[in-house]
Design a protein around this nucleic acid. Structure first.
Lengths: 208, 208
DNA sequence: CTTGTAGCAATTGTATACAATAGAGATTGG
DNA sequence: CCAATCTCTATTGTATACAATTGCTACAAG
């Protein structure tokens, strides 16, 4: 929604103000707030007023650790259920990732799109509604995705090559291996995020 | 809510019918349906109509595996952050569990209440909003809780003694150990559930 | 007899009006 | 001057009316 970056942490969200801003009534705004609450992007203070949730670095670390475990489980299930057609899709998806990052000036948006699709394909292959639901709420972290803007070449390359390792595990239908690789993949993505985040914080401090 | 057992799987949920039944208007009913959707207790069919979600044994197994991982992580964090006051609370909580199950005719409701509190204390000690949110949606499985009605004595005793093991891990602030014990604890709870469930299914088939 | 289309009924999505509630500020008693 | 309470305002919770969409059924044409 519009609040993916436009609103600052802790800011009050009046239902009526948002409704005016979006040109709709309060009813659909309330619906949207309920969903965002479920995803912890919005929280309520003691008196039931909605606020933009504030995410500390520790909170993000926590979310990534959970994502590592859960998406690792997804990879395990996916490996056990993998069919050749899906495997082909994953391969071409990772090729597209390579195309996006191989040039001197990487196509960051292209990387993000194909990367998202890569992980979604795995999630679909795992074939678990519960997983899909849980991960959905963990993956929607606009802050994190924007951080990819600051990835270095080695971070892009690492991501691509770890996907290749994952494909090898899928090809062997090796669930435990796929789980281990995926969990490590996510945890390293967090480290890249944390580095970039601290870098950003430094920049922000410098600019202020 | 009222639909925790009163409505059968796959049944259509008309917003207006539920509103009449509860004596309120459609607006709060819609709110409730959104929440239950987020917890996968309700889903929507292709034409946006709400249905009671149907849970196969495989789906439940899946949810338990996720819960094992996530609650294991919660136990690890809790162990790393444990303070003596919380540890005392956990000890007395597990004693209360023992009191409830030691007699010839176990107090099932008492067991469930204290067991719930035991796990909630650990979740609080883990001090992670994300964890609390994710587990909340995994733990609300009315079907599962009712199955405890069919637990045998050994299942109750096992549960209590595994809690004791967990307390030992907490006392040592041993995160990895606590995680392993908790994960195993949850997985064994599923096996007890699956056995009871199959038993129930057999009974149902016999009665029909 | 089958198939396509039009219209009807039922249900969900949205808007608006009203009720309840919590917080801030003023006012009065000590 | 401080504190307690009361009132007023801002915001959320709820109800109801209306619009839009979907699925079904009946009817007609091939």
């Amino acid at each position: 929604m519009i609040l993916s970056g436009e609103l600052s942490s802790g800011e009050q969200l009046s239902e009526e103000a948002l409704a005016d801003r979006c040109g709709v009534s309060r009813t659909p705004v309330r619906d949207a707030l309920r969903r965002l609450e479920a995803e912890l992007l919005v929280r309520k203070n003691d008196s039931q007023r909605s606020l933009v949730a504030d995410w500390s670095l520790g909170d993000v670390a926590d979310a990534f650790e959970l994502r590592a475990m859960i998406e690792g489980y997804a990879a395990r299930r996916a490996a056990e259920r993998m069919d050749d057609a899906t495997l082909d899709q994953l391969r071409s998806c990772n090729s597209a990732i390579y195309e996006a990052i191989k040039r001197a000036r990487p196509d960051v948006q292209g990387f993000l799109d194909h990367n998202k699709r890569f992980h979604e394909l795995i999630l679909d292959a795992a074939d678990s509604r519960r997983l899909t639901s849980l991960l959905g709420s963990l993956i929607e972290q606009p802050v994190v995705w924007r951080t990819a803007q600051h990835y270095g070449r080695e971070a892009f390359n690492r991501s691509h090559s770890e996907h290749e390792d994952l494909l090898a595990a899928f090809a062997r239908r090796d669930g435990p291996w796929a789980e281990a690789i995926m969990a490590g993949h996510i945890r390293r993505a967090f480290h890249a995020y944390a580095d970039a985040h601290h870098g950003l914080s430094a920049i922000d401090r410098g600019a202020a």
